[in-house]
Amino acid sequence: MIVISACLCGVNCKYNGKNNLNEEILKFLQEGRAVLICPEQMGGLETPRIPHEICGGDGGDVLDEKTKVINPKGGDSSLQFIKGAHESLNIAKKVGAKVAILKAKSPSCGCGEIYDGNFSATKIKGNGVTAELFLRNGIKVYTEKNFHSLK
């Protein structure tokens, strides 16, 4: 089983109420090889919701309580992001997933690159909260940019 960010399979769970449908990734679900997650919704955030970014670090720093996930108004949603990451990990463990395909650059799902926390579209090296928790638990994380070797 593969855990996949629900937005990549057409579920309207993005912060703006839309999705990031990727037809190639959707095939994993259609073939019965995947289970969908949306860590932000699973953490209790509404859809649509105000955008969030990790301020002054990455998902590992959020998990280690060294920094926060904020919105442009300064609101702190770190607890919801952490809760959603742990709920997602529980699902991954229950289905025996060793691999995930998550949404690139997301403060939850980004792997290798995320936004810098200034809401300026500037990217930095790092992982989102869920991606980092998955990696810490031995789940290999891909994004829609580099999943092609899984076919």
Rank of each mutant, 00 (worst) to 15 (best):
K98R: 14
C9G: 02
F28R: 00
T67N: 03
N137H: 04
D61N: 13
Q80D: 12
A92L: 06
N12V: 04
D61V: 11
D64K: 03
I2L: 15
I91R: 12
K123W: 04
K125F: 08
T122Q: 12
G44I: 01
K125D: 10
C7N: 12
N19V: 08
K27C: 05
F119W: 07
G57R: 05
I101D: 03
K103F: 03
E65M: 12
E65W: 05
A6W: 04
L63Y: 06
Y142V: 00
D76S: 10
A34D: 00
G44S: 08
D58T: 00
E53H: 05
Q30F: 03
A6G: 12
R33Y: 01
T130D: 08
P39E: 03
I50P: 01
A121G: 14
S88W: 11
E46T: 14
K93Y: 02
I124H: 07
K105C: 11
L21E: 07
L26M: 03
K66T: 14
N118C: 14
P72K: 05
C111Y: 09
K103A: 13
K83M: 11
G57Y: 07
M42Q: 12
A97D: 08
I4K: 01
C13W: 07
G74S: 13
M1I: 07
I114E: 07
K140R: 08
P107E: 03
G56V: 10
R136A: 01
I50D: 02
H52V: 09
S108H: 11
I91M: 15
L21R: 06
G10N: 02
P48L: 07
L102I: 15
L21V: 02
D61G: 13
S77A: 15
G17K: 04
G126M: 01
C7H: 11
K151G: 10
K66Y: 06
I139S: 06
S120M: 13
L133A: 00
A121D: 15
K93S: 06
R136E: 00
A104C: 15
L26P: 00
Q30D: 09
R33Q: 03
L45G: 02
P39V: 00
K98E: 12
L45N: 01
D64E: 09
N118E: 14
I37S: 00
G43R: 05
E132M: 07
E87D: 15
G96I: 02
E132K: 08
